[in-house]
Each structure stands twice: as C-alpha cells, then as structure tokens.
C-alpha cells in the first residue's frame, strides 16, 4: 500500500465515524458539496491529522482546495510528510 492510499484509508475511517453522510464515502467524494464539513468537523479533522500523522497544517493549508476531498487532503499530508523526511 503506497503512502497516498494509506493516508486516504485513515482519513476515510475518521470521516465515516464522524460525519452524518449516509451515502458511500469515496476518496473523491466532494466533502464540501455534500455538506459533510462544518467548522467543528474541520477543527477535529485538523487535530486528527496533526496527532495521527505528526504534520502541522498551517493556516494556508486549511482551505477548501485541500479539504475538498479525502484524496486532496491525503495528497497534502503525503507532501508534508515527504518534505519533513527530506529535511531530516
């Protein structure tokens, strides 16, 4: 399993537990269109990402562009993890 898929699975599991969306949740599901994301869930999602993956999501990252779907957010997390690894 590559990094992107691994992160997507973790995010999907979190969202499945924490959103009222009744339909199928795929990595490409538009989380904003479906109304799944509100301010409380975004806060919890940020805290989850920071504690689970050890990456800090700066203010610039918390945007509709990166939170549009699980796929987008996973891409951001993987990029941040790779950058941290290179820096180390």
């Amino acid at each position: 399993m590559n990094g992107q898929t691994f992160v997507e699975k973790q995010l999907l599991a979190f969202l499945l537990e924490n959103t009222p969306v009744s339909g199928p949740l795929e990595p490409t599901t538009d989380l904003i269109e479906t109304g799944a994301l509100d301010s409380l869930l975004v806060t919890d999602l940020v805290l989850f990402v920071e504690s689970r993956f050890g990456v800090a999501l700066g203010a610039g990252s918390i945007s509709p562009r990166h939170f549009r779907s699980v796929e987008c957010l996973a891409r951001l997390i993987v990029a941040k993890l790779e950058k941290a690894r290179e820096a180390a």
Binding site: D38, S39, L41, V42, A59, G60, I62, S63, P64, F67
Partner: peptide
Amino acid sequence: GSLAFPNT
C-alpha cells in the same frame, strides 16, 4: 466565505 475555513 466559510467559517469552516477561516482564511476564506
């Protein structure tokens, strides 16, 4: 803008 994304 959206209160979910403060920079917006």
